[in-house]
């Protein structure tokens, strides 16, 4: 079966662009703290979600609603409402991470298919099967800490579908288990749906040297004419011992296009593209390329090569943990 391309949409226009470009599946979220891309001007009002899902269904595509932050104590009703509304809007599944919310969804919305978010960081077959047995989870988005052979081993031991990230922003830490951002800024992926938020970014020009700061900490320092990467905390340049370098990760993003055949052999069901904050033209272009790749694979044709080089805008790319030496 052809591998499913799961594509992000931050706006209704992006959703339509992705569907038109050939995405099998779109994932998106409501415009509040219930999803892990809670950026200003992004995401869907309830009526937009309903219309977006109808549009996708008319074109044979599915829509998954990400409700994948961890509900705040005292305010669980907001997250419960999001699950109820995802179901009534006609979503094909909800993407969840929180144990309490999974339990709630399984008990109160048994008809709504449940996927496990990458934010739950289920990293081995025992964990996947636990979520399947306990909450009826049908698909798990795997954390970006696994190699391709490890993914194959997981799929050999579970009936749960797996979905893996193939393109876009790269988390270096196990997802949903990182509070670096809230340590430096007070805003975190788990609680607020944001990481290294723009509201806490400052650029300081120090006579020809540009410092990019997050929460007052220098993350990058570049010369005047060099490109200044966004100060994402885990991709900063720091000193430890005698070394001054990108201690955790270089400013790279993930591109696993070359690994699609191996991921298919490893039993992966769906390929996920990161980037609900991206423009609709970017989304459409990435979708077209990945759709062409999986269609070529299915038809036994050679994979198109280097298809996404132009989109990366000169940024360095990595295959991340899929190759074991990354560790």
């Amino acid at each position: 079966m052809v591998m499913e391309i799961v594509c992000p949409a931050g706006t209704p226009a992006s959703l339509r662009a992705a569907v038109t470009a050939g995405a099998h599946t779109i994932y998106c979220g409501f415009a509040d703290e219930t999803n892990a891309r809670n950026f200003p001007g992004l995401n869907f009002q309830r009526d937009e979600m309903r219309a977006g899902i109808a549009f996708a269904h008319d074109h044979g595509a599915k829509v998954l609603v990400a409700i994948n932050t961890f509900p705040r104590a005292g305010d669980e009703a907001l997250w419960h409402r999001a699950v109820a509304d995802a179901e009534s809007c006609g979503a094909d599944a909800a993407i969840l991470a929180d144990l309490g919310l999974l339990d709630h969804a399984a008990r109160h919305h048994p008809g709504l298919r449940r996927h496990l978010s990458v934010q739950a960081a289920a990293s081995n077959a025992d964990a996947l099967n636990f979520y399947a047995d306990t909450f009826g989870v049908k698909r798990v988005v795997l954390p970006r800490v696994l190699s391709v052979p490890e993914i194959a081993a997981i799929n050999a031991e579970t009936e749960v579908e797996t979905e893996v990230f193939v393109y876009g922003g790269l988390c270096v830490m196990a997802e949903g288990r990182c509070s670096l951002s809230s340590y430096a800024t007070g805003r975190s992926p788990n609680m607020n749906g944001v990481c290294s938020p723009a509201s806490h970014v400052e650029y300081h020009d120090q006579g020809g040297v540009l410092d990019a700061k997050l929460g007052g900490y220098i993350i990058h320092r570049v010369g005047k004419d060099e490109p200044a990467p966004y100060p994402t905390l885990c991709k900063g340049c720091f000193s430890a011992g005698e070394k001054t370098t990108h201690l955790f990760e270089d400013p790279v993003s993930l591109n696993a296009e070359q690994l699609i055949p191996q991921l298919q052999k490893a039993g992966v069901t769906a390929l996920k593209i990161e980037g609900r904050q991206r423009s609709r033209s970017y989304v459409a272009q990435v979708v077209r390329n990945f759709r062409a790749a999986v269609d070529a694979l299915e038809a036994g044709r050679p994979m198109p090569e280097g298809m996404l080089a132009r989109l990366s805008e000169g940024q360095a790319m990595t295959t991340g943990a899929y190759k074991k030496t990354w560790r």
């Binding site: 270096v172 509070s179 340590y183 943990a321 990354w326 560790r327």
Partner: peptide, 19 residues
């Protein structure tokens, strides 16, 4: 404070090694 856990070993990376 334990802020993050990763598949990658940063001590090893700093010394030019893998996990």
């Amino acid at each position: 404070l334990p802020l993050a856990i990763s598949g990658r070993c940063y001590h090893a990376r700093m010394h030019g090694r893998t996990k």
